[in-house]
Design a binder for these strands. Structure first.
Lengths: 200, 200
DNA sequence: GCTACCCGACCGACCGGTCGGTCGGTAGGG
DNA sequence: CCCTACCGACCGACCGGTCGGTCGGGTAGC
C-alpha cells in the first residue's frame, strides 16, 4: 500500500516528538528516527528539510494550539476567575493530549538556531501575556490579590513538570485540578487568621 | 604559578555546568569544554573519568545541598508555615547561587545512564518528600488546606523556570517571594466570599 | 649545593565510530 | 512520460576517549 496520503509526515512528527522527549534532540540520531518512522534516509529527507527544522515544527505545534484557544477564552465575557480556570483546564488538556511535544517544547529551547529561538520566545511571551492579562484584570476588579507576576514565567514549567513526573499515577484532570487549586487558593487554610502575629 | 591546588577540578565543574546549561549536554562537545576550561584533552581527562560522569556530578551537587539544608529545616520545631517558607527561601537561594547547575539538573535527566538516573531520581523523590511532609503535617494541624499533592512534583520546575526565564529582571529574593506568595495564598483575593455561587 | 629521580599536571595526535546531510537511482500510479 | 515517494551508498566533519610523551617542582642522597 503505497502513497498513504500526507500522513507519513504526521507519523514523522509524532515519532520524532516522542524520541526527542525521551532522549533529547541531540541525543537522538537520525538512525533511531529512521527506524521509528520506518523510512530510509532519503525517504525521511523527502518530507523534512532538516533535523532542526523538524524540531522547530514540533515545538511550535503545541504552543500555537494553546495560543489560539487562549484567544478564544480571553475574548469571552466571563469573569477573571472563570477565565483563569479555563486557561488552566485548556493548558492541562493540551499537555495531556500531546505530552511528548510539550516536553520537547520545554527542554529543547537551547537546541534551536537563532531564528527558531526567536519564534518560540515570541510565542511563549504572547501566551504568558494572556495569563498576565487575566491576572491583572482580575486584580483590578478585586477578584485577585495584587500580585508580583514574576511567577507567571513558570506557568508552563509548573504544568509540564507535574504532567511529566506524575503522568501514570493520576488522570490529567486530577493533575490540572491540583495545580489550579494551589494557583487559585494557595496551600494555607482559608480565612482563619491564625495567631495574627507571626508577621513576615 | 603552577599547581594551583585542587581548583582546576572546580573550574571544570562550573565551566561545564554553564556550557551544559546553555547548549545542552549532547549539544556541548569536548572541544568547547576544553576551550572554556583552558586545558587540552589529556589534561581534562586527568581530572574526570568521562563526560557522563561529569554530568552526573553537576546534577548531584545542587540537589544534595538542598537536601541537606531541608533536613536542617525539618528538624526544627517551627510551625509548618514557617518551615514551608524556609524551604522556599532555601531553594530559591540555592538556585540563584547555582543557576547553571540547576538548569542542567532539570533538563538533562534523560542524558544520564541508568545508574545516574537512579541516583538523581532517588534524590529528587527524597527532596520532594520533605515538601510533602511539611504540607501534610501542616494540613493535619489545620495550618494548610487538605490538598491533592500532585502539584508537588513540579516544585523544582516551578522555581527553576521562574529563575531561568526571569533572571535578569528581578532579584532572586523577589522571585522567591513571588513564588511563595502564590504557593501560600494563591491568586484569589482573601476571605471576601465573592458571589458564593460560581460552584465548580 | 648539586644531582638524580619521581610524580602529578598537562599536551595533542590519533582512534573507531557516528553524526546530519546529499545524491543518483527506481518503482509505480496518473 | 512524469512525478511522488522512497531507497541506501556515501560524504566530510566531528564525536568522546586513549595514549605516549613533556615539563617543572619537590625531594632524597651525598
Amino acid at each position: 500500500m503505497p502513497t498513504r496520503g500526507g500522513d507519513t509526515r504526521a507519523r514523522i512528527l509524532t515519532a520524532s516528538a516522542e524520541l526527542f522527549a525521551r532522549q533529547g534532540y541531540h541525543g537522538t540520531g537520525l538512525s533511531e528516527l529512521l527506524e521509528a518512522v520506518g523510512l530510509g534516509k532519503g525517504g525521511l529527507y523527502h518530507h523534512i528539510t532538516s533535523k532542526e527544522q523538524l524540531l522547530l515544527e514540533i515545538m511550535l505545534g503545541p504552543i500555537d494550539r494553546v495560543l489560539a484557544s487562549s484567544d478564544r477564552i480571553l475574548a469571552g465575557d466571563a469573569d477573571a476567575t472563570t477565565k483563569l480556570r479555563a486557561l488552566g483546564t485548556d493548558l492541562g488538556g493540551a499537555m495531556a493530549a500531546d505530552l511528548a511535544a510539550w516536553t520537547v517544547f520545554l527542554r529543547e529551547y537551547s537546541a534551536l538556531g537563532q531564528t527558531g529561538k526567536t519564534q518560540v520566545l515570541q510565542r511563549r511571551q504572547d501566551y504568558l501575556d494572556r495569563w498576565r492579562r487575566v491576572l491583572t484584570d482580575g486584580a483590578a476588579v478585586g477578584e485577585f490579590r495584587e500580585l508580583d507576576l514574576a511567577f507567571v514565567e513558570s506557568v508552563l514549567g509548573l504544568f509540564i513538570y507535574t504532567f511529566v513526573w506524575d503522568r501514570d499515577s493520576s488522570p490529567p484532570e486530577a493533575l490540572t485540578d491540583s495545580i489550579m487549586g494551589v494557583l487559585m487558593h494557595g496551600v494555607c487554610a482559608p480565612t482563619r487568621r491564625r495567631g495574627g502575629a507571626k508577621r513576615a
